[in-house]
């Protein structure tokens, strides 16, 4: 697979998107307050950066995201490695996981607000839940699928826990775990905005609500663009990191 996101492809596809957007706006003759033009969105974007301090909100969102996502991934991988080795116990835990997994993190929001109050925590907890289950289940499955030869080699050389986990099982399962960590990034980013739309007084989700309350469709669109761009950047950055790690393994 060649680079999916070459600069040329990105520019062309964004140019076409903006062109279509402009066409719909021109032909449709929509009200500016309901459907802003690309120009309106870009000037709102400019306004966000110059007059409002949008970077503070971006920073607040990123901080919440980092805390929620990283802690979730660490917990999920750690628990997944242990449960992956304890198949007998996992049999009993799996039904509960399968019950909890399809519940949207947003459904827990009323409880989260009741228990933790408003502020940073609801968004962090929502992100934590969003990333947790996919990474946990994928880690358990990755540990189960490790080539049995690694276990035999470890036995042959007398490698015991906890070295076995750290030196053999984690790296052997890593490619599949990394894949799920990557996928969970997108999911978690989606729920960041949702989490911040309730209770938060800063951040990108808060800006969405704020724009709505002020009837600023142009600002709303500008914030949506920022959310998309940051999501894209995060995804690309993690993809590069993943590739770099796998490269040091001599894999292509």
């Amino acid at each position: 697979m060649k680079k999916l996101l070459s600069v040329k492809n990105i520019l062309i596809s964004f140019a076409v998107l903006i062109l279509i957007w402009q066409l719909i706006y021109t032909i449709g003759g929509f009200n500016k307050a309901l459907f802003p033009s690309p120009y309106d969105a870009v000037s709102a974007l400019k306004e966000l950066f110059t007059e409002d301090s949008v970077l503070t909100d971006v920073g607040a969102s990123m901080a919440r995201f980092a805390v929620g996502y990283i802690s979730s991934v660490i917990c999920a991988v750690f628990l997944g490695l242990i449960l992956g080795r304890l198949k007998n116990i996992f049999q009993y835990i799996n039904p509960v996981i399968q019950l909890l997994r399809p519940i949207s993190p947003m459904a827990w929001l009323p409880f989260i607000v009741l228990w933790f109050g408003i502020g940073d925590i609801p968004a962090v907890v929502i992100i934590f839940i969003a990333a947790f289950f996919p990474v946990l289940l994928s880690t358990v499955s990755a540990v189960g699928k490790i080539d049995p030869i690694y276990t035999k080699v470890s036995k042959s050389f007398g490698i015991k826990q906890p070295q076995l986990m750290w030196k053999i099982i984690l790296p052997a399962a890593f490619p599949q775990i990394a894949n799920s960590i990557h996928l969970a990034l997108g999911t978690a980013w989606v729920f960041l905005v949702a989490g911040e739309m309730v209770g938060a007084q800063s951040g990108l989700g808060y800006l969405i609500i704020d724009s709505r309350n002020n009837l600023r469709a142009d600002t709303l669109m500008a914030v949506i663009i920022i959310i998309g761009l940051i999501g894209l950047l995060l995804d690309t950055a993690l993809g590069l990191l993943e590739k770099q790690i796998l490269k040091t393994w001599g894999e292509n």
Binding site: I149, K152, P171, F174, T248, W249
Partner: peptide
């Protein structure tokens, strides 16, 4: 037979 080397 399949070496059992650690690729990482």
């Amino acid at each position: 037979q399949n070496y059992g080397l650690l690729p990482w």
